[in-house]
Structure formats: structure tokens, C-alpha cells
Design a protein around this nucleic acid. Structure first.
Lengths: 351, 351
DNA sequence: ATTGGCACTCACCTACCCAGAGTGCTAATT
DNA sequence: AATTAGCACTCTGGGTAGGTGAGTGCCAAT
């Protein structure tokens, strides 16, 4: 499986490149004749056929049947994307659209949706954007309301104006006044801190102050611990333009579509995939089966993480057929991620 | 277009009924021979052919081509559903599933999602449930947080534990303390009242107390007015099992699916349709083109409004192909709506 | 090493036929 | 007068056959 330079000389790579480009362009298997004309190598079809046979042996291309041209395999795409691709700078008009679509808008929740829609509209494929990770986010305000049966409704605001809520269960029953007091205490203590540091501080405070703090404060800390301790971050994303995918003939058959849209509405697989791209920064690409999820067999996913204050907080990406114009999509995703990150940057700089 | 009894005697109706039933059962155009065997009328195919010709003249059935059987038209389905249908009582197992799925669950937002999923799973079609209308709902708690540039983040809780938030713009700049005071005032004034009555009271109070109230209270009322005055109720629904619809051959072609799923994600048309059924109580049915939306040409929609405290607060329904088992779906939707309404009933009765 | 030539394969399109299902009409039957 | 049997007719769908064009692999010539 290892590809060394002996197997792949300059010429073969050049031919693979034009083959992939050509196939992406018009979706037909590429034969030796077109390739001979398309490439600037001035080789006869016969020669090209020999090279193609080699490329096929290496698993980079294959033909759907004997008398058809060749189409790239996943490895072929991979090699193309990794080393052969000449990315085109982003279209100025698109750039304008993006920065316009992601600037005026103020509400960060709308912002994510706007980004997703923008991506799908400008690429004519599906756009996906994860909600910003909450750990990397500042606590602004917290509030408790009593419910029946030892349950408490927690409302907390992060990052200026993102509202979250959650129901927690406590051993003890608290009155509205007690909860009010607890909230005041916690607000004075933690408001303005990042959630991560709040969590850390909570653990420390609970441990250290076990004896010396008064009961009310201890209770407040315990409630806060319940609030932030687990599963509250349900990873989620906003998907747009899924229907664009129905237009691509390679995805059009019923079962494929059904699997794909099932995956979209169950969200789990998509989240896993996006989580993977969260780790790296820069653009990541999953081609066809590389994703490991059957539903995305015929799809490629081009993602980039986006950051606020130099911390990765989310991922955005394009989902489309494997045969997509990577040289345009890659810079597009890259730039959009950067603009989105900038747009989400809390305006703490304004005095 | 008017159908009187001269045109449609008992026998024709009986035949129409079995024809529709048969077509719903196996999706094939129904010919005179099968109909002759299927109906208990003991008529020869020839006779039946005559009757069918009449039914076709009346626009109740039509044949896709000369040598095929007949299939019901929209009017045919309509007549069938309105006067010929013999509804089957709901399957006991389904009933158990429904009441189980909609009882334990506590969080009302989850409840709507659960109902939607339940519907899609038990019918193998798409389920849709609107979120309960907010006007018919009680205000529990309100809270303001200042944002930059004269903007205020409003958080309010209705019905025990439903959290809503909204950003409003004010002329004047308020401090956090002022907002806290305003919230306290409003909570003491309106907590426990229905949103509708809060709105009414607000207008009245603003008018009457113009002079005699102090400035802080007036400000509080003004902020509240901004909060509740407009567009805050974005009608929304939870849709599940859309992918089930891809399985039906009558909806399977690409363009149809695309239109349909576009309509789902734009939501507008679906909301309009559901709004219509909101007005009546009991089960409502839109067959094929009756909906008036092209995307739903090949679909039927069976809906029922659901009520809390005898007030209609939302709608739930099944979206599927026109050829669906109405005799089962209708009672199913009916019962589910009732159970959902009961499950949403605020537990004010428990002391 | 490259190329022209050539036999071969395969998908795809068209034409065609045939069977089956179902119809409408007419004449016979009840 | 209503019902039915009979019959000619229509249309779909499946199956077969032939032809075309694109493309290949291989061999021998350059």
C-alpha cells in the first residue's frame, strides 16, 4: 500500500491530477484519449493507457467496467487532495458575501445558523456548523428557580447573551429565597470567569472550605456543582441545505438518501465526525469511506475548526459528493471558519 | 361538481369504498375483476365496469392509462374519508405505547419531541407536533440583564420550567440594579398570570398609571411591554421520521422529495397548514392537492389539535402518502392528541 | 520508451415482439 | 331494464436481438 517515488514519477502524478480534475469537472469516467488531449504532456493514448494501468495497480483509480474510462478511488482522491491540488484563492464575491453575512448579525445563536445557511448557499451543498463549545466560554449570570420534588430549574447566561437551562435534582429542598441567595453568592464569586475555571474553582472551594464556610454558601456551591458537573453540554450543530444533496446523481438513490438523512437527524455520527476535526486546526477532509460511517460512503466532508480568542470552540464544514471542487471548497471553508471566529469574538475590546 | 344521490346510489358507493380500500392496501390500480371478487355484491366484472365508468365521470376515480385499473382521485379519497370510512378502534398495543411514551416524561419540551417521535415510529410515516402556543400559558418569572448599546437580554420562564429569551432595545440605558428592581416589580405584579392577561394588564396599567406611578415602575412596565408586544412567538414544530417518507414509491422521485424536504426545512408552509387545523378541534385531513401547497401534492396530512385546560394550544399530525390507512391513522391521531394534552396539563392539582 | 494497430468487451440505445391486464362496446340473457 | 358474456382493442412491461461507440489490453513496429 505504501507509495514510493519509484512507483509514482512526476508524469504519473501529473496524469492522475488531470484525471481527477477532469472527473470532478464532468462526472464521466475519463478515458485515455481525453486525458491525452487534456494533459500538456503530448503523449499518445496508448502510452497513457500504460500509465493508467499502473495507477490502477496502485489502487488510485479504477474503471467501473472494461470499456469505460477510469475514475479516482478514495486513495486517488486522497493523494490528489494532499499533494496535487492547486487551491484557488477564494472568489472575491464569495468573500464579500461571507463577511457581510457574518458581521451585522448580532445574536450568536443566529450567527451559527447564518453561517450554516451561507455555506450551503454559496457551495450548493450542505453546510454544517457546530455550536460553540461551552467550556471555553464565560459565565455571565446564574439563576435558580424551585420546582416541585427537590428539583431546581437552573438558568445561566454565558458570553453576554447565550441562555442555557437545565433541571437538577437536589437532596435538600430549597426555598425561593435560599436559591436567590445562592445565586447571588455564586454570581459574585464566579461571574466573568470561564466555565472551565468555574468548574475547577468549585471543586477546590468545596474541598477547602468544607468546615469554615457557612451552610448557605456550601449549599450554593453544591448546587453549582450539580449544574456544571456533567452532560449539560449536548453537542449540537446546525445543518442547512441538506436538500441540495438530493440533486447529486451519485447520492440520488433512495437507500443512500435515506441513510444519509437518517444520519443527519440522529446527529450522532455527524457529531463524532465533527468532533474529530475539532482536534486539529486548519482544514480537514474526509473522503468517502474514510469517515468510517456507511451513510457517508459517497460523500466528502471538508471541515475547519473555528476559534475565539485563539481557542478552538467549534467546527464548520461542507458536506457534498466525493466528486466536489476541492480546490475551491477548501479555501472557502478555511476563510469562512476564520471569519466566523472573528465574528463570534466577544466585543470586550469596546470600552 | 355537486354530488347528489341520483348519481351515487348505495351500490356505487359500496364499490368506491372497496376500490379505495383495495388501492390503499396494495397500491395497484384496481380493475373490474378484483373488484368483483372483493366486493360482496356478486356482480360480474362487466357490470362493475359500467359503474366504474360512472364513477370516473363524476371525477372520483381515474385510470393512469387505458389498460390499467382505476385509482381514487382526491375527490374520491375525500368522499371515502368523509362518508364511507369505517374507523378501526386503536390497537391496544399502540395505545399502551402512546400513554407510556407520554407519561413518565416530565420536561414539556422533551414531551413534544417525544410525541413527534412516537407518531413517526408507530405510523412509519412522518410525525409533526407544534410547540404549545404561548399565549395560553402562565408567566412564572422574568429577569433582565443589561447588554451593550441600550440592549437588554430578557429571560422569562413560563409554565413551571419553559425558558424563553429575547433581546430588546430600549431608548434609555438601564443599570443592572435598575433592571433587577424592574424585574422584581414585574414578578410581584404578574407572576402566575397568563401571558394574555399580562399583556392586557400591561396596556391598562401603562395607560392608567401614567402620572401617578413613579418613574421606576413606569420604566419596568415599558420594558415589559417591549418584551411581550410582538413577534416573540415564533411558531415552531418538531418533525420526526421524515426519512420514512423516502420509502414510499409515490413520493420517491427526486424532485418531489426535494420539494418536500425543502418545505420541511423552511417550515413556513407546514406552519400555515398546521395553523389551519388549529382552528377546529377534532381530526382534520388534507388530501393531496387540497393542502394548496405543491410540495404536498402527493401527501396527506392528518391532524388534530391538542388542548390543555380545554384550550387549544397546539396541533399534531401525521404526514404520509395520500395512499395511507386512514381508518387506522385517524383514531391514532385523535387519541394521541388527547393523551398529549393530558400529559401537558400543568400539575396544579397536586397540592 | 513510445506508439499505431487491432481484436475484444461492455454499456446503452433502438426496434421489435409477446403476454397480460384491463377496458369499452355490443349483443345476448335474465 | 338491468346484467352479463363475448370480443376487439389498447397499453404496459418484460424479454430478445442487433448495432454503435467508447474504451481497453496487448503486440509488434518505431
Amino acid at each position: 500500500m505504501s507509495l514510493n517515488n519509484q512507483d509514482l514519477n512526476e508524469r504519473s502524478l501529473q496524469l492522475l491530477k488531470t484525471l481527477v480534475e477532469r472527473y470532478i469537472q464532468d462526472g464521466q469516467p475519463v478515458g485515455s484519449r481525453v486525458l491525452s488531449k487534456d494533459s500538456e504532456l503530448n503523449l499518445s493514448p496508448a502510452t497513457i493507457r500504460n500509465v493508467m494501468a499502473d495507477l490502477e495497480d496502485l489502487g488510485l483509480i479504477h474503471s467501473p467496467h472494461t470499456s469505460a474510462g477510469r475514475i479516482p478511488t478514495v486513495s486517488g482522491y486522497r493523494l490528489f487532495v494532499d499533494s496535487l491540488l492547486t487551491v484557488k484563492p477564494l472568489d472575491a464575491k464569495d468573500l464579500a458575501h461571507i463577511s457581510q453575512g457574518l458581521s451585522e448579525n448580532i445574536d450568536p445563536n443566529n450567527m451559527i445558523g447564518a453561517a450554516s445557511r451561507l455555506i450551503s448557499e454559496l457551495t450548493n451543498m450542505a453546510g454544517v456548523v457546530t455550536l460553540p463549545k461551552r467550556e471555553l466560554v464565560y459565565l455571565r449570570h446564574i439563576e435558580f428557580l424551585p420546582l416541585s420534588n427537590n428539583r431546581i430549574l437552573v438558568i445561566f447566561v454565558t458570553n453576554e447573551q447565550e441562555v442555557h437551562n437545565k433541571v437538577i435534582h437536589t437532596d435538600k429542598i430549597f426555598t425561593a429565597a435560599e436559591l436567590q441567595q445562592a445565586a447571588n453568592y455564586l454570581n459574585s464569586l464566579y461571574s466573568g470567569h470561564s466555565l472551565a475555571s468555574v468548574k475547577a474553582a468549585l471543586l477546590k472551594d468545596l474541598k477547602h472550605d468544607q468546615e469554615r464556610t457557612n451552610q448557605a454558601m456550601l449549599d450554593a456551591l453544591k448546587i453549582a456543582k450539580l449544574t456544571f458537573e456533567s452532560g449539560h453540554q449536548k453537542d449540537d450543530y446546525v445543518l442547512s441545505g441538506e436538500t441540495n444533496l438530493m440533486g447529486f446523481s451519485e447520492l440520488a438513490d433512495r437507500d443512500h438518501l435515506k441513510n444519509l438523512f437518517n444520519a443527519f437527524s440522529q446527529k450522532r455520527d455527524v457529531i463524532h465526525l465533527l468532533d474529530q476535526s475539532m482536534k486539529a486546526d486548519g482544514v480537514q477532509i474526509f473522503i468517502g469511506k474514510e469517515s468510517g460511517y456507511q451513510a457517508f460512503d459517497q460523500c466528502s466532508l471538508v471541515t475547519s475548526s473555528y476559534s475565539v480568542n485563539d481557542e478552538i470552540v467549534g467546527v464548520l464544514g461542507v458536506i457534498g459528493p466525493t466528486r466536489m471542487a476541492y480546490e475551491k471548497i477548501i479555501p472557502f471553508v478555511d476563510v469562512t471558519a476564520k471569519i466566523l471566529g472573528a465574528a463570534l469574538n466577544p466585543k470586550t475590546t469596546t470600552p
